Simulated scan of single mutants.
Amino acid sequence: MNRTGPHGPDDVVVLSEVRRAYGTERARTVALDGVSVVFRRGTFTAVMGPSGSGKTTLLQCAAGLDRPTSGTVTLDGLDLSGLGERALTKLRRDRIGFIFQAFNLLPALTVEDNVTLPLRLAGRTPAHGAVAHALERVGLADRARHRPGELSGGQQQRVAIARALITDPAVIFGDEPTGALDTRTALEVLRLLRSAVRDGGQTAIVVTHDPVAASHADRVVFLADGLVVDELHGAGADTIAERMTHLGAWGDLPDAGSRSLKGAL
């Protein structure tokens, strides 16, 4: 595993001129069209854009779930393009936490067993007290022996957060993690993610369509037509929503491609 050198130690995820195309030459779809963006340690970033803008593809490439057609992705100092599938799987288990809209908990396992699953798949035993600490962080210390079907949707998502935190990952990726939750429960989950970033030093990257959810992030990165076209820092929900309504027009500007955040690299 070769480590890359141009970026600083706090640049946890770096996409450089990443392009991802699908299909044949005659029928080709370009999901990402030369995206360059940096996600730094201890930051919470929301990724937003209209349907088909490339949000999910960006997340998958950044997490090593999909390989770019061209360009490079560096995660925690490692160039993912040089890793085989076995090494990528190990990296995802050791250095990445995932939170999904559908929770993805195993119904036959207890809360405790769901949380420890990433470690067990990696052949590791949880450190003494690690599971209890993870569940305490998400407010579920008294639910370790329950099964997912005995929990509310918000509680199940908190189990998923504990599962994402148990390996002490460098990065937590979320794909619409509050999409299936009511507003109040979604806010609780977002506060937990903020806490993980603030107290644990993790980097959180979350795809969302919800301006309220995005307003809890330090930064919002906007995609349109496979390009990063803008970003906001510390913005409120109204400002984020207003920017979303103009993404189509913004993406049509002649210099849209030059706003791919190369200045952040």
Rank of each mutant, 00 (worst) to 15 (best):
T4M: 11
H7A: 11
H7C: 00
G8I: 03
V12W: 05
V13S: 04
V14K: 03
L15W: 09
S16G: 00
S16R: 15
E17N: 14
E17S: 13
V18G: 04
R20G: 00
Y22F: 12
G23T: 01
A27L: 13
A27R: 13
A27T: 12
L32S: 06
D33W: 08
V37I: 13
V37M: 02
V38W: 00
R40D: 03
R40T: 14
R40H: 06
G42Y: 05
T43S: 14
T45A: 13
A46D: 13
A46L: 13
V47M: 09
V47Q: 13
M48E: 07
M48I: 13
G49C: 10
P50C: 05
G52I: 02
G52H: 02
G52R: 03
K55W: 12
L58W: 10
L59M: 15
Q60Y: 15
C61A: 10
A62E: 07
A63M: 09
G64D: 08
L65R: 07
D66Q: 14
G71A: 12
V73C: 09
D76R: 05
D79P: 00
L80N: 02
L80M: 09
S81F: 00
E85L: 03
E85P: 00
T89R: 11
L91T: 05
L91P: 09
D94H: 14
F100R: 07
F100M: 10
Q101C: 09
Q101S: 07
N104K: 10
L109E: 00
V111P: 12
N114Y: 13
V115F: 08
V115G: 03
T116N: 01
L117V: 05
L119P: 04
R120G: 01
P126M: 12
P126W: 06
H128C: 02
H133T: 15
H133K: 15
E136C: 05
E136Q: 13
R137Q: 14
R137S: 10
H146G: 05
H146L: 10
R147P: 03
G149T: 11
E150I: 04
G153F: 02
G153M: 13
Q157H: 10
Q157P: 12
I161M: 09
A162L: 10
A162E: 02
I166V: 14
D168T: 14
F173H: 04
G174L: 06
P177V: 06
T183W: 09
T185C: 05
A186G: 15
E188C: 01
L193N: 05
L193P: 06
V197E: 00
R198D: 08
R198A: 13
R198P: 02
R198G: 00
R198K: 08
I205N: 12
I205A: 10
V206G: 06
V206K: 05
V207I: 15
T208I: 07
H209L: 07
V212K: 00
V212Q: 06
S215N: 05
A217S: 10
V221H: 08
L223S: 11
D225E: 11
G226P: 04
G226M: 06
L227A: 11
D230W: 08
H233L: 07
A235N: 04
A237W: 06
D238I: 11
T239G: 02
I240P: 01
I240G: 01
E242C: 01
R243K: 15
H246W: 02
A249F: 03
D255Q: 03
A256F: 09
G257N: 01
S258E: 15
R259S: 08
S260R: 15
S260H: 14
L261C: 12
L265Q: 15
